[in-house]
């Protein structure tokens, strides 16, 4: 997938009146569209009842809709993109979250690790992740920037955990942002997941889910900033793609004043994290996750973060 794609603004974790969201399905879509969303997932807590109306409303508004729901148990939440049924979650055990992951996959869905480090009981029952994961290969993506309860979350630690898992060889793990939208006013800490989708899509919902699975994503603080890599073959690669071994260069594209005034770029690979500069060659081992900061290279100044570029052999699935 070279230039045969375009970037779509996606919000992959949203609630309506079918669970504890404040707004109807139609109103929720309209509110998110006002914010620029072009791809939306419906992820009501333990409810798939809104999916039919949601897909219809999305189609009427020219938005790509992804059906789903968020299996919200006492021991943590799992987003099931593509999941169309109600799941009886009562007997799920803290030592067996894999049963949830397998169920979602059996239905052709994608498993999202929702708000991995967030406050739970007694402040917010069920929201803290208490499951003991034995097999991370059965998760498809992390919500590295779930900003629904951002003050009581540790997205800074989640990002590092996700990169740590990549370093362990779990290279299939994608990373998305999540508004965890319930219809509340915006607080200014929100991010956008930008998906690279083909120009022609026979089944846009399926294409969007495939882009997530393939990690063709970059998470940005609102406006799109492309952080691509130019390989030793001179071709430009987007996140999720396999790049030929050898030195690479960062290629940055942003419209208007989307780029921060004092951009600082970092790359994480299998061994380390270091500062890089656009168009200055560097080498990466195993994978590369590129981050853009505004001035200071810390979580509070994070502007954009890519999904991994892959080097050196087959990508873990």
């Amino acid at each position: 997938m070279k230039q045969d794609y375009e970037w779509y603004n996606a919000q992959l974790h949203n609630h309506t009146c079918h669970s504890d969201g404040r707004a109807s399905v139609a109103k929720t879509i309209d509110l998110l569209r006002e914010r620029g969303a072009q791809v939306l997932a419906l992820t009501d807590h333990n409810a798939a009842s809104g999916n039919e109306e949601f897909l219809k409303c999305c189609a009427e508004r020219g938005v790509i809709g992804i059906r789903g729901n968020e299996i919200s148990t006492y021991f943590g939440h799992v987003v099931g993109l593509g999941l169309e049924e109600y799941v009886d979650w009562r007997y799920m055990r803290p030592d067996d979250p894999e049963s949830i992951f397998d169920l979602i996959h059996e239905r052709g869905g994608l498993c999202g690790y929702a708000h991995p480090i967030r406050i739970g009981y007694p402040l917010v029952p069920g929201c803290s992740w208490l499951f003991r994961i034995h097999d991370y290969s059965r998760i498809d993506y992390y919500e590295i920037l779930n900003t629904g309860d951002y003050l009581r979350s540790r997205n800074d630690m989640v990002i590092e955990e996700w990169i740590g898992k990549l370093r362990e060889g779990l290279l299939h793990l994608g990373a998305v942002s999540a508004l965890d939208y319930h219809g509340r006013p915006w607080h200014g800490h929100e991010y956008v997941t930008w998906l690279a989708l083909p120009h022609r899509m026979e089944n846009p919902e399926k294409s969007a889910m495939e882009a997530i699975r393939r990690q063709n994503m970059i998470v940005c603080k609102d406006r799109l900033i492309e952080l691509n890599l130019v390989g030793s073959d001179g071709k430009e690669y987007i996140p999720g793609e396999r790049v030929p071994d050898g030195p690479v260069r960062l290629r940055v594209r942003a419209e208007g004043d989307a780029l921060p005034a004092r951009p600082v770029y970092h790359a994480d690979d299998a061994d380390s994290r270091r500062e890089i500069r656009p168009d200055v060659p560097f080498e990466a081992k195993g994978f590369a996750v590129v981050r853009l900061f505004d001035g200071q290279a810390d979580f509070d100044h994070l502007v954009a973060i890519t999904n991994p570029f892959h080097f050196g052999g087959r990508r873990e699935q």
């Binding site: 079918h18 669970s19 504890d20 009501d44 807590h45 333990n46 409810a47 798939a48 009842s49 919200s72 049924e85 109600y86 009886d88």
Partner: peptide, 13 residues
Amino acid sequence: RGPEQWLGEHHAY
């Protein structure tokens, strides 16, 4: 849960 399938849940306090 109904006789033939789960009918759903309203997850809201």
